[in-house]
């Protein structure tokens, strides 16, 4: 390898961009918050979800999610008695403004809120060519929007369809589990506003967290367990037809 004048000129802008971050330094982290003392997850109690869309609206407001994109969304399932293997799923505007009245022909109907599963072995972070998305030491999958190229590999890699490209910044975006809130001792915006408690933020490393009692006494499932992603969003009362 030889550094020609041409190569050096090509490298200089990259170096200038990187230098900006070096000068900016590390911002002040939340005091008293220790990365290694938490392992975040979420519990979703499907029989409690009323599909009101509060979580979707709160998420959009808290995180400036562009209209038409969703970091969390609600799906309404209609499983006909005679066609259990082909459920009808709809999510008008991500369920942000609620759902039209159901015109059902029997069968069963229910809501399933979805969001990033914050997988411990996440496929999305493995495909990122520049290290712009990663699992934090406290178990949250984040996107470094200052480092993301917008190549969309991660959008394709996520088996749950939880990622999108922000049309303003052209970088990958997804649920951050309200990282700016949970590190301050608050719950996520969606859990804060959920009127029925269908969504619960949980810290698996906190022995006092009620999640442990819940997991012991209930049969929970994750989405697409066959993908072995180590998903950490636990669903209680989930029907087998849920994809």
């Amino acid at each position: 390898m030889d550094i020609t004048r041409r190569r050096l000129l090509m490298l200089l802008p990259a170096a200038a961009v990187a230098w900006k971050y070096v000068l900016a330094g590390t911002p002040e982290a939340s005091p008293n918050y220790k990365l290694t003392e938490h392992w975040w997850s979420m519990l979703i109690d499907i029989p409690k979800c009323i599909g009101c869309g509060s979580c979707v609206r709160a998420c959009a407001e808290e995180n400036d999610v562009p209209e038409g994109n969703y970091r969390t969304w609600i799906e309404r399932y209609h499983v006909a008695d005679w066609k259990i293997e082909r459920p009808q799923v709809e999510s008008p505007d991500g369920g942000k403004y609620g759902f039209p009245p159901q015109v059902g022909d029997g069968g069963k109907n229910f809501f399933v809120p979805k969001l990033c599963n914050h997988c411990a072995d996440s496929p999305c972070t493995q495909v990122c060519p520049v290290g712009a998305t990663f699992v934090t030491p406290d178990g949250v999958v984040l996107v470094d929007k200052n480092y993301c190229l917008g190549c969309r590999y991660c959008v394709q890699a996520c088996p749950y369809g939880c990622r999108f490209i922000n049309p303003k910044t052209n970088t990958a975006e997804k649920c951050s589990l309200c990282y700016h809130r949970i590190t301050k001792g608050l719950t996520t915006a969606c859990c804060e506003v959920c009127p029925t408690g269908a969504r619960q933020l949980a810290d698996l490393k906190n022995p006092k967290d009620p999640i442990h009692e819940f997991l012991r006494t209930h049969t929970v499932q994750v989405l697409k367990p066959h993908m072995a992603t180590g998903a950490k969003v636990f669903y209680n009362g989930m029907d087998g037809s849920v994809r």
Binding site: G25, S30, L35, L142, D144, Y179, R181
Partner: peptide
């Protein structure tokens, strides 16, 4: 912490909150 920019973690955490709780 790994194959990523460690400073991105406090940067994400520094975002202001909208819901007071």
């Amino acid at each position: 912490y790994g194959h990523y920019r460690g400073a991105a973690i406090p940067e994400t955490a520094a975002r202001p909150i909208a819901f007071a709780g």
